[in-house]
Design a protein around this nucleic acid. Structure first.
Lengths: 235, 235
DNA sequence: TCAGAATGCGAGCGACGACTCGTGTTTGTC
DNA sequence: GACAAACACGAGTCGTCGCTCGCATTCTGA
């Protein structure tokens, strides 16, 4: 009597199949990003990928599984892309630079993967998709908490959590503006987002890091940042 | 030859009909708020209102028209509720209080009309609904611009517009957090939102208002209603 | 070489939702 | 009371969408 495995055994995929899966996920990313999850039809995804509806269901049991798999791959990409960006909290670097660096990385990732924002922000996520959504959100919240807690040693945990939620919400709001604009406007919005986060957090951090920030404190108010646009990669 | 009116003439409504319309709009508000616009079915709205699907279509040509009418009534409500809250920019009151008052009013309205946020924020708005959506958004943006422009006389118009967009985005983000929480948490988030907006705007307003407040600014500005800020404001 | 698995197709099924239509009831007006 | 218009009903139509099924084609391993 063989082992009766009720779960689906992972059917052996050929190289062709893996290619199709990548193709389908890319198509799904495109369709999701342009029309949202709920409005995206599986037929449209299959058409975008250049295959038949039946072929799509050879690799995914249902529409939700496509979004789940896509979300997981995006999370993996994000971890490898800048997983270490949030982890180390260097108390030596001034807050303004830390915020700017974090924002730059996040924005960069989301500009290259616009689906991510759609899946994170879309309210039209049924069933198990919502769990994935929440899990992802909570992961990010926890990260921000870990980043903030050394800077806010005096606050109760609930306050730190709340501040983390506010930071996430502010970031998502700014990201929406950034993704909706282009060119110089986009860079300007990025700068505004940095300003918002920095000015929000700076008074909370208090006098702890005040001395380290003394270098660039005076330039914060009067700077007009519309001219220099060469945002080269900072080493 | 009689006047061939291709457009639908407004059929004479009885009192019963007006009551039904209000009933249906209330039901639609409930269903939209709980499930979103796209996921809401007209049958569910009719059921919520306690009427048949056919009755619903006696008063609205289609699903979109329900949302349109609902949005227009909400806008009217908002205008009467605190239409004057944004209009007068009293330069004597400190920025912090002005921001707090505006936030309190907006939050209050949205807590009593949760549909408003759904219709404003939902990405699932097809066809003509999007126009209405944009129109409403632009109206609010313009209001914020008019509020800000006297405070930012030195900035170019594009910068003021951008700042207004940022303020709106920040407000919407904060509102989402507020609506998702309850009790003390909700009040705490309201306070955070006020802090965010104030800290963002305060450095922008800069030393201009600081002087004006010390001098107890001349009330000459308060009388003009829609003066399109002639950028050469003589200090 | 060849059995069997993986891949691919696309017409079609079942469910659901926006909307209609024929019919009956209530209301305003003469 | 009579007539028309407004109101109300709910079973039914039509289109869409997620998903299936039978069958053809390609690949793998022995």
């Amino acid at each position: 009597m063989p082992t009766h495995q009720e779960q689906e055994q992972p059917r052996r995929r050929q190289a062709r199949g893996e290619r199709r899966i990548a193709q389908l996920l890319e198509a799904a990313a495109s369709v999701f990003a342009s029309t949202g999850y709920a409005s995206a039809s599986t037929n449209a995804i299959a058409r975008e990928a250049g295959v038949s509806p039946g072929t799509l269901y050879q690799f995914f049991p249902n529409k939700e599984a496509i979004a789940i798999e896509l979300g997981q791959r995006l999370m993996a990409d994000m971890r490898t892309a800048y997983g270490e960006a949030l982890a180390p909290i260097d108390p030596a670097t001034p807050l303004e630079q830390a915020v700017a660096a974090a924002v730059d990385r996040f924005i960069d990732f989301n500009c290259h993967n616009p689906v991510f924002f759609t899946l994170m922000h879309g309210p039209d996520v049924p069933g198990r998709m919502a769990e994935e959504h929440d899990a992802l959100h909570n992961t990010l919240i926890t990260r921000v908490e870990n980043l903030l807690s050394p800077l806010l040693p005096d606050r109760p945990a609930a306050a730190v959590t709340r501040i983390a939620h506010v930071c996430m919400a502010l970031y998502m709001a700014g990201l929406e503006l950034v993704l909706a604009s282009e060119g110089d406007d986009r860079e300007a919005y990025v700068q505004e987002l940095k300003d918002v986060l920095f000015r929000y957090l700076d008074p909370l951090v208090g006098d702890r890091l005040r001395d380290a920030q003394a270098v660039s404190a005076s330039t914060a108010v009067a700077s007009n940042a519309t001219s220099n646009a060469t945002s080269t990669a900072t080493p």
